[in-house]
Design a protein around this nucleic acid. Structure first.
Length: 475
RNA sequence: CGGGGUGUAGCGCAGCCCGGUUAGCGCGCCUGCUUUGGGAGCAGGAGGCCCUGAGUUCAAAUCUCAGCACCCCGACCA
């Protein structure tokens, strides 16, 4: 009986697919490109969603919900937007058995329908800022899909804000970018490069796009969150104006920002190993799994007694724990199963432990096994979870830094990209140069870090440059 | 849309080339007994429009043609 995943070193994408399915995170839906998020995967999404939602509310945002269907005419109002999204949209042309007067787009993102409503709601500077987020599903008809990373339909949040000034809208985009950085680094333990997108990579309809970019276990990049300064593009397209303090009519300034279930894919590829998933404690549905062990009925009642007191202690410390007392499965099977599912800490209690008043505690990430006294188990485990959270981040950070390289010419660049890794180097090229690099190497500018002060020479054009860019192959 | 491939039990496959009784195997599932500190053992059992349609033949999972679906590599895409 060999129920293990493909080794990461053998076939990384097979490994990924194996983990997603064997850890019961998701399954393929009946329609090509669709995904069923299974309870365990959904629980991870709920963790992420709760963390985000709290941070959004702490930064002054409120939730609302806008319709799934968008009239075709709305999509066409912003030229770049329709050009960018129309080819990957699903369109409804029949309703109630009749051909519709106007086709309805299934939202690929909600800027258009939201700004059509903002036109009604915004009249004065007193109505601003308007800071709305929605949790929703969206549809993008992708040609090639991968569970969590790119599916036809996925879950996300999209924030859409309206402001009286460009500075305020830009500040909002930056603020939410920072929220995303905190989400990625402090909760998902996934270090990210934070920066601006090049013009060719920016969102269709944005003035500027910002992103967080993470390195996966195969040294490819994953765009993990984006935040856009939209300028007045959508306000102009939907004619959203307000009277400012000087009683002058002005177009509203906007931002939008989003993260999606793709983050789950990021967590899998950032931390996972050949035994499966490794979840950061802060988002793990179960932070601790307790596996009781007994043979006789006598041992069973002894162990059960200890389980109760341990459960009470873990609960008192607000630890999310699960006692796997299923008698149909053997302990060995459970060990493997919960390692596959990435539970950060495993606790074993058997007759021997009861006798010594101890428990066995095993870390998922480094397999470290220790025996600790029963009495202060709660405190020890709280500390252990914090340590694991930090260690996961540091391990990922070290991996990323060791695989991020400077280059001084294009030959070096090609070698790094071919061998796998990020390139962090001075850049003064054009959009055409970006295309050329992409054609040659499949690498793109992932982001241009903010607040740069250094000067150097562009590795591609040889021109002087004050801009460092990060290049990589991406998902 | 171009190139290649695959459709047989819940999953993974064999059988097909060379047509011939009740279509097999592994895992999973069910029942019973024994087990339980790293994926338990034995015994018994359930489960199949062999992708669809047409054709060839005494006879088709197997040969021929058409269709459909899916997968991989491109193209496209974040």
């Amino acid at each position: 009986m060999a129920e293990s995943v493909t080794k990461r070193s053998e076939d990384y994408s097979k490994w990924y697919t194996d983990v997603v399915q064997m850890a019961e995170l998701a399954d393929y839906g009946p329609v090509k490109g669709t995904m069923v998020i299974r309870p365990y995967g959904y629980a991870i999404w709920e963790s992420i969603r709760n963390i985000c939602d709290r941070m959004f509310k702490e930064t002054g945002h409120v939730n609302a919900y806008f319709p799934l269907f968008i009239p075709e005419s709305f999509m066409k109002k912003e030229a770049e937007h329709v050009e960018g999204f129309a080819p990957e949209c699903a369109v409804v042309t029949i309703g109630g058995g009749k051909q519709l007067e106007e086709p309805l787009y299934v939202r690929p993102t909600s800027e258009t329908i939201i700004w059509s409503m903002y036109k009604k709601w915004i009249k004065s500077y007193r109505d601003l800022p308007l800071l709305i987020n929605q949790w929703a599903n969206i549809v993008r008809w992708e040609m090639r899909t991968r569970l969590f990373l790119r599916t036809t339909e996925f879950l996300w949040q999209e924030g859409h804000t309206a402001h009286a000034t460009a500075e305020e809208a830009e500040a909002e985009a930056m603020k939410m970018l920072e929220v995303y950085r905190i989400l990625a680094e402090d909760y998902l333990a996934m270090p990210v490069y934070v920066g601006r997108k090049s013009d060719s990579e920016k969102f269709a309809g944005a003035v500027r796009t910002y992103a967080i970019e993470a390195m996966m276990g195969d040294k490819k990049a994953l765009q993990s969150g984006t935040s856009h300064f939209l300028g007045q593009n959508f306000a102009k397209a939907f004619d959203v104006t307000f009277l400012n303090k000087e009683n002058k009519l002005e177009y509203v300034w906007a931002s939008s920002w989003g993260v999606s279930t793709r983050l789950i894919g990021g967590v899998i590829m950032c931390h996972g190993d050949d035994k499966g998933l490794i979840l950061p404690p802060k988002i793990a549905p179960h932070q601790v799994v307790v596996i009781p062990i007994w043979k006789s009925d006598e041992e069973k009642s002894l162990v059960k007694g200890k389980l109760e007191s341990l459960g009470a202690e873990l609960k008192a410390k607000n630890i999310r724990y699960f006692i796997d007392d299923n008698e149909q499965a053997t302990p060995g099977w459970k060990f493997n199963q919960w390692e596959m599912k990435g539970v950060p800490v495993r606790v074993e209690i058997g007759p021997k432990d009861v006798q010594k008043n101890q428990i066995v505690v095993v870390r998922r990430d480094i397999k470290d096994k220790q025996f600790i006294p029963m009495d202060n188990a709660g405190d020890v485990i709280v500390t252990l979870l914090e340590t694991i959270q930090k260690d996961l981040f540091n391990r990922a950070l070290e991996f990323r830094n060791q695989n991020t390289f400077p280059v001084s010419n294009y030959e070096e660049f090609k070698k790094i990209i071919d061998d796998g890794g990020f390139v962090k180097a001075f850049w003064a090229g054009s959009a055409a140069d970006e295309v050329k690099i992409k054609e040659d190497t499949k690498a793109t500018i992932r982001c241009i870090p903010l607040n740069q002060t250094e000067k150097g020479v562009c590795f591609f054009t040889g021109k002087p440059s004050d801009t460092i860019a990060i290049f990589a192959r991406a998902y």
